[in-house]
Design a protein around this nucleic acid. Sequence first.
RNA 1: GGGCCCGUGGGUUAGCUUGGCCAAUACUCGAGCGUUUGGGACGCUUGGACUCCGGUUCAAAUCCGGACGGGCCCA
Length: 507
Amino acid sequence: MSGPAKAKRGIPQKEDFNEWYPFIVEAAELVDKRYPIKGMDVWRPYGWKAMRLIDGLTHAEMERSEHEEYRFPLLIPENLLEKENRLVALLKKARDEGVEPEELRIDEDEAGFKKEVYWVKHAGENELDIPMFLRPTSETAMYTMFPLWIRSHADLPLKTYQMVNTFRYETKQTRSFIRVREIHFFEAHTAHIDEACASRQIDEDLEIVGNIMAAMCLPVLISKRPVWDTFPGAWYTIAIDVVMPNGRTLQVASVHHYRDQWAKAFDIKYEDENGEFQNCHQTTYGMSERLLGAVVGMHGDDSGLIMPPKIAPIQIVIIPVLKKGQEEMVNESASQLANELRAAGFRVKVDSRDMRPGQKYYDWEIKGVPLRFELGPRDIDKNSVFAARRTGGKTPLDRSEIITLAHAQLAEIESELIQRAAQHMKGKTQPLPELIECDGKWTVEGEIADGVVFEIAFDGSDAEAEIIERTCGLTFLGDAVEAYSEPKPCVITGNNTKRRVWLARTY
RNA sequence: GGGCCCGUGGGUUAGCUUGGCCAAUACUCGAGCGUUUGGGACGCUUGGACUCCGGUUCAAAUCCGGACGGGCCCA
């Protein structure tokens, strides 16, 4: 195999994000894209470790919030789709008949991922009577079992989750972590006695998202998606987006409130305290490997990745600097240092490859190891360790207090990343140029800047939202969960509103 | 959904326009030996490629078609 890193001169500038990103995910050995199926990369150990550490954050949050982990089969028989289709039809009918129309937006073509599923139609020599599909998400599979498990109000809330791979037949351009055909997926599914309890679950989900994003030093936009962009069968969808370096937003998580629509379709009901049957109210919460994609995009620079310490597969790399005749002494000192750090809980690697130290520095910089310790005869003499932070800055550290100092260094890197990311977000958010109507035709005053997220006060209708989307060539992310504290005039109607809406080009 | 470009050792690439001299260029990389090691070391030895299928032709890396894969732009 090739070495872990390529020549620095070979790294595209991060400004050229469309070149930088695909280069870096391979050069940093996160994935190998040479597997001969579009959109299905091979996870390499370094990338998988990072993903597993991100998953670890999620598992910890699930544990804390008393969700339980399940593992559902990958294959789903076709006939189960019928229930889902019936649900969609039902919702459509409700909409057509004017029942809560704005709450029941359904696009039949999108419903059930019909166009995006992989099918298994043969097994051995036989054609299957009932074809099976690979889960694009697991509502159908899980809600087939929920009625068997939920009988009494005492069984609720049911809080489940699983981390599995899901499959979607993407025809558009694929991108590592961002748009793939086999998705490393997290999905939490809950069932509750009523709408209010389900709503409380949504609040908890948002708190969980907040914790996970904070651990990865990722600032996010949290917004309620417009009705036309609501998940099929959902009452509403709240999405979490990260602003990538090119200003495009990447949806990294979503939370759906289903009310009792799915429960009706799948007959998920419980007996309440009065002995009466009630439908459950449900929520889902999903995330994926896009989280890693966001980390790569948000924190990386012209020299490669920068891993936030909490998810860095290697937090500290130790480079022994050898001198002729003193190899053994230096190596021994390095491994002793490594052992001490490991005992204190750090993820540590000693790079004892036979090459020049400079070469190693470049290698680990591409991979984004946050802290590098150099250890040579000079340092050992002075009882110190020479530290270089991936975010910039070099300092000798007192060897005798190395554990404390290493913690401090990583904390400093973390806060530097948070600060940079916040700065990035701030710089990428702008007010929208003024919209002008003339004979029923809308135009924009000036240019729509590229690579930017726009924030507007908006109080218009769906139709007016569509006008804005068309006029500006942007996508409505939706209503910020944190609305304006003071009313502002809507860009279309001029009415005062606290509704704070984001528009962006999206992935 | 529409358009454009690309596919040569593990990686980057020359060759393709004008088919033969290509049993293929350079750098990098892998293996081995030696000297080295505080920001990309050097010497010697050695290893490794025309995406696949079909067509045109005496002859295809080169021309044509398709598949697969990669990339970009626009809706």
